[in-house]
Nucleic acid binder design. Sequence first.
DNA 1: CATATTTTAGAATTATATTCTAAAATATGG
DNA 2: CCATATTTTAGAATATAATTCTAAAATATG
Lengths: 201, 201
Amino acid sequence: MKKLNSTHKKTPAKIEVIIMAALECFNELGFNGTGMNDICARGGTSVGSVYHHFKSKDQLAARVYIEGIKNYQSGYIEELLKHNRPRDGIFAIVRYHINWVYSNRDWARFLFRMRHEDFMWAVEEEFAQLNKKFFDTVGTWFRKGIQAGEIRKMSPDMYPPVLMGPCQEFTRMLLEGKTFAKQETAASELAESAWRAVKAV
Amino acid sequence: MKKLNSTHKKTPAKIEVIIMAALECFNELGFNGTGMNDICARGGTSVGSVYHHFKSKDQLAARVYIEGIKNYQSGYIEELLKHNRPRDGIFAIVRYHINWVYSNRDWARFLFRMRHEDFMWAVEEEFAQLNKKFFDTVGTWFRKGIQAGEIRKMSPDMYPPVLMGPCQEFTRMLLEGKTFAKQETAASELAESAWRAVKAV
DNA sequence: CATATTTTAGAATTATATTCTAAAATATGG
DNA sequence: CCATATTTTAGAATATAATTCTAAAATATG
């Protein structure tokens, strides 16, 4: 009559509820402004329950972050791999980034705001792993274009900032309410800029 | 025999000591990881004293931020105004940004990490003011180049991200230990990229 | 020098993240 | 379906750390 490590059927759903409640609270009240109370209230659950599923407030926030970054990265890779020519790939990922932020504002806001929070140490290892895989894939894709002479040579570390820096900054402004530029305009102008910055000619 | 609002001679020095102690603690231990205790210990002062000069931990952190951003922005403007040709100005500010980060790591780390912290609401107004003045000045400078046809036309909101986004991302990587690129290499490659992205031809 | 004001110090208070205990719910072998 | 080991929930108790408070010390100025 012994059982081990089984898990109740509704547990994954409950965890998801807590994560979404946490995401909303953190966005509305900030990390420090959010009490475990607030999360429990919004998720319709109890302190004990939350602590049963998550080791700490930090762990919880970190899980939220991982959830978001996974979604972003997987879509990014999927989009990139649809294309072969450097120019097409660059336009695609810039567009992807901007669209993703426009249609996942809550997640995007959380990812931007929390990128450097203390609690990220709670998932340092996992986060590094995700990033490594992500940058490896992207790097491999771009190497083709560089070797084919379609993308100009720079120190390898410069490509990510040059390509994605502008959309990062633009979407940051967007989420801070500092710009109301149209999605379409932004996407095409930033993609064009990125392409000019790296194309070989 | 009545006096009002006078201030002891050593007060400004003390405030500076507290600010530097706070900067170091926050960088080493994170905002939440830092106790008022830690700051007092490092600054050789007492809780009561710190609270006499700063309304709260949030206020203190926010003052540190403002101190740092003022230094960064004033140097930036000074550098930009030394130049007249768009290309020269762009090279100068990219270089300035990178050099500033290399030679003010502590401040830079703090500014990056804390940009979206809750406590920034404590100085929202002042921060907005600084940014407005900063962007106005920069905007005015660039408008010349655009009108002279040396810089291509884009939505106005795109210039800041296109010009500074790459160095922002690069220096972020630098502070996270994700790159060891040489200061000189980074500066020239990123400046060149920025110039290609916006030049008219 | 006298005294109003500012500054310092540290104890007391308050707020809130975390731990703990026990009850309720659930899964599974029989 | 039953018995029971395990997981999950709940909320009270505890611990930690920010903030407030009170009084003493230091300082500026008429």
